[in-house]
Design a protein around this nucleic acid. Structure first.
Lengths: 205, 205
DNA sequence: GTCTATAATCAGATAGAC
DNA sequence: GTCTATCTGATTATAGAC
């Protein structure tokens, strides 16, 4: 039930500060994780950022690590959804590659904070290692397309597919280091990335 | 004085475990920082990795943060050295860009662990904020060349120079996420990056 | 240059009231 | 759903011996 409806149902019409649920808590926590790093964030930091006490946070989640897990799941689910989209099944590998690259940029724009947290995970805990493994799985999905595109002749053959995959995904992933929605449209970002990957700086517009 | 020479001078010829100095300690510490993240690394972790006790570490450095500072200084010095090299002063902006991109890849290969630590700094302490600011300074140096190259007509004009600079440096910086010397030569890496930036995947070899 | 022992502080998590 | 108070263990750093 939405907060407003809940308030009405309870007969309390007066305005009040929205209370926390897991989703809202997660949104705030993820921002702090990004700013200070997961390990650099204490529950006290989260309490300050949310405006509620540490023990109130524990009412919503079992642990700090659970907040991380929720963020990682959200990011990974969004990325893996791409693999079953129609565009990722186009006939020509080079077209699939272009589609997937564009979609990754879009997902990154749509789920920016969650993907940012995912990309910074180092594997210190079981949760982190699980996320790293799933992420590698996604990387392999992209690498397979690059290899196929190279075999098709869609990609120059003097470049190692494994290097290309890592550099292309690295370029895209680096977007989380600076991108903030608003100043640049995701559409322009996507077009720029696709243009650079396909044609480089000197390519024809 | 090198350890062996020191041992000779002291008249002790027998083999012995090399003792630590700041440089060796730093090298080990940086590896742990990379594996577990700086905040995720405790002095106990460093004691385990070095094989000496926590208090022995404090004999060499004042604090954990000083180890970080030493690593950051080394990385930044190596990067800034590029800005005063001859090749960074070539007449055509597009040539300067190509030179600098190649050199950044080389520096990254030569100082990999230190640059890796630099790229992961988030700004939690005064030291980290100082490093972030110097890093931004270097980014601006690259951005200025991209802007000039765009004005020269060396770079397609429909792409925002600021986006191009971020994506290119992002691609290069992402190398620290996976590169380990040995399996791929720095030379091939450099050629691949330059080729992709200049001509994209479809460019002529 | 290295050690053991310990001080002082901080972090993650819980108890129990409102 | 939120609070204050508190437990427990980890963490950074120091003291002082060898």
């Amino acid at each position: 039930m939405p907060e407003a409806a809940a308030a009405s149902a309870a007969g309390t019409v007066r305005a009040r500060r929205a209370q926390y649920d897991v989703a809202r808590l997660l949104a705030v926590a993820v921002e702090v994780f990004i700013e200070r790093g997961y390990d650099g964030t204490s529950m006290e930091d989260l309490a300050r950022a949310t405006g509620i006490s540490k023990s109130s946070i524990y009412h919503h989640v079992e642990s700090k690590e659970q907040l991380l897990r929720l963020a990682l799941e959200r990011a990974l689910d969004a990325l893996f959804a791409i693999t079953s989209e129609e565009g990722a099944k186009t006939a020509r590998a080079i077209d699939r590659l272009q589609y997937v690259i564009g979609r990754v940029v879009e997902v990154l724009g749509a789920e920016l904070p969650y993907v940012t947290v995912l990309l910074r995970v180092r594997g210190n805990t079981e949760t982190e290692r699980w996320a790293l493994e799933r992420r590698r799985q996604f990387d392999r999905f992209v690498r397979a397309i690059v290899i196929e595109a190279a075999a098709d002749g869609g990609v120059r053959e003097d470049l190692r597919p494994a290097l290309v995959e890592r550099l292309v995904l690295g370029m895209i992933n680096s977007i989380t280091e600076w991108y903030r929605p608003g100043r640049v449209e995701v559409g322009e970002l996507k077009e720029t990335v696709v243009a650079m990957v396909m044609g480089g700086l000197g390519g024809t517009p």
